[in-house]
Structures are given as C-alpha cells and as structure tokens.
Amino acid sequence: MQTLKEDVRQSILRAALREFKSHDYTDASMRRIASEAGITTGNIYRYYKNKEELFEALVKPVYEKLIEYVLNLKKELDRSYTGGNHGLKYLNMVEDTVIGLFDAYSAELTILMNRSAGSKYVQVKSDMVKLIATIMEDVFTSGRDNADKLTIQQRQSALMLAGTVVEGICLILREHEDGETVKRLVNEFIFLYYLGNEHRFTP
C-alpha cells in the first residue's frame, strides 16, 4: 500500500513538473496536474494540500542549493578580491553555479528562474541580479572596500548589466533542455558578454 502511495506521489510530481514548465505558478492548474497524473482532482489534495505546497515540493531543493551556492560565492568574492581585472573570473563563477544546478535539477531550475511568478520564490531572479550587481560594483571600484566611492551612474550600470546577465541565462534555460547545449550557450553568452563590456571590467 505504501509503495502504491509513493507511486502516485511520483506521478503527481512528474505531472507537476510538466505543468509548471509550461505555465507560470499563478496560471498552473491542479486539475490539469491531476488529469496528467491519472488521478482525480480530489485525490491530489490527499498528497498536497494546495498548489503552493506542490510547487514547493518541486523547487525547494534547487532553491536551497542555489542559496547555498550564492552564499559561498559571496564569501569567495569577499575573501579573494584583491583588485585587478577579475570580472571574467567572477562571471565564470556565476556560470559554474548555474551549470552545476542545471546538471542536478534541470527542469526545477528552469521553473524556479522562469515560472515562479506569483509564488513565494518570485524574488529568486532579483536576488541573482543583486548578487551579480555586487560583482560589477566590486570590479568598478577595485574591491568592496571602495564601495562608498561608487557613483550613482556606476550603481545604475551595475544593475543594468546584472539584469542583462540574469535575463540572458533565463532565456537559455527556457529555450533549451539539452544539458550540453545549455552549457555551451551559457559559456558563450558569458564570454561574449564579457568581451562586449571588457572596458568596464578594466580598472
């Protein structure tokens, strides 16, 4: 009996993955998920009390990993920044984070970054923008110790450039599912992005 319940739960999760990849959290339908899983809508609520709980069951593991990676990345930035032209190095660290998560949670990462509007995870994208903006600011001022020297224009530029990076990565995740293709495109995007803005990364 327990095995049957677990089979049903896994069917629900698989159906939910497909639904949330196709629809934002707000527009996703528990009825469609139940139908895809081959159960009644009433039965799905025996496993997940609402859409929020089901969404969380899918994306919480990748969200927790993302937060862990972001915190480690921030520590690395604070520890290792010694001035000089480290813009590409730090962008590559962001790239490694995205690729590492995609390897383990391809569909879930895509949902988290592209389909979480209306959920409590909607801030994930803006959190990534803030992190990358911090990297840009460090490069502009040759280190966090000089953050008070940032001009308003530099802060605006950092946010704009960071938003471009995050949106570019989200587009790649949204349009491609093959791991090797995602890796190649993210790597190419980061490199071309850096080349296009190299003058900004040079102290």
Rank of each mutant, 00 (worst) to 15 (best):
M113I: 11
H86Q: 08
T202Q: 15
D178H: 08
L91G: 01
L185Y: 05
R200S: 05
A57P: 13
E76F: 10
L109K: 05
S29V: 03
T97C: 07
L150Y: 01
V59I: 15
T40E: 09
Y81D: 15
V166P: 02
D96N: 10
E108D: 06
D27M: 12
V139D: 08
S80I: 12
E56I: 09
D145K: 02
Q2D: 08
K5Y: 01
I99H: 00
E64A: 09
K49M: 09
T26I: 08
R200L: 13
E180K: 12
R79H: 04
D7S: 10
V98C: 08
T181F: 00
F102D: 05
D96T: 07
L159A: 13
I67G: 02
V124S: 05
Y48N: 01
S116N: 07
E6Y: 06
S80H: 15
T40K: 14
F189V: 00
H176T: 01
I135N: 04
D145S: 04
K149L: 12
N43H: 15
K183Y: 09
Y63D: 05
Y45L: 09
H23A: 11
Y69C: 10
D24Q: 12
I152K: 11
F55A: 07
K49E: 12
V182C: 10
I44W: 06
L17F: 01
L77K: 02
V182L: 11
H86Y: 03
Y47P: 04
T41C: 00
P203S: 09
I33L: 09
G118R: 08
D127N: 15
S11Q: 14
G143P: 02
R155D: 06
Q10H: 08
H176N: 13
I132T: 10
H86K: 01
T110A: 14
V70N: 08
I172H: 02
T181P: 03
D103C: 00
Q154S: 10
Q10V: 04
E76M: 09
A34S: 07
L192S: 15
K21G: 07
A28L: 03
L131K: 11
Y194F: 11
V62I: 08
G168Y: 10
